[in-house]
Amino acid sequence: MALSSKTKAVLWGPLNKNNPVIVQVLGICSALAVTSKLEPAIVMAIAVALVTAFANVIISLLRKSIPNRIRIIVQLVVVAALVTIVSEVLKAFAYDVNKQLSVFVGLIVTNCILMGRLEAFALGNGPWPSFLDGIGNGLGYGWVLVVVGFFRELLGSGTLLGYKVVPQALYDAGYENNGLMMLAPMAILLVACIIWVHRANNKELQEETN
């Protein structure tokens, strides 16, 4: 299927120049506490991408009928319902991951990316572009999460997805897992590093003031 250039922009923009996490600063809330291991980070990324995409589609379909006064509440209800479904499905099919994510599944509701995209995109666009926008933003959020999760698990526990990747020989030579990586502040420091690299490569995103 050939995508028009506009559709491409909708899908790929959020992955790079318009990234919701490191450029628009949305959705950091629930992101950081789940990245101490790679697996929950991936599940979280998929969950957010799906919820964003489907919430976008639903709101986009309803956009001509929603009374303006209760707009925010309607959006919240749609999102909360979708998140509850995701959480129920996780409980049924990925019990272990659901245990690790605990309250952070519920916190997808207040993930600013969702409300941001619903307000900024879905209310003014058709269902198909809205779906792509949701997937794009979800993935843009997801890759940051996965990168952070990758480094925290690799450096913090010496494993990836639970499999040992740091060879025993290295431990014998005196290498030790960095316990600091398992602590929450390191997640935010890693995001700062991603921002640094990203902005060093994209000069137009750099800010003038602190």
């Binding site: 009374p67 209800v77 479904i85």
Partner: peptide
């Protein structure tokens, strides 16, 4: 769309649909 009656009906229908959907899931 800004009529109170419409708003109330809209909200009620939405709540019922969502509740049924969640209960079913």
């Amino acid at each position: 769309r800004e009529n109170s009656g419409y708003t109330i009906i809209y909200a009620s229908v939405m709540v019922i649909v969502v509740a049924l959907g969640l209960a079913f899931t």
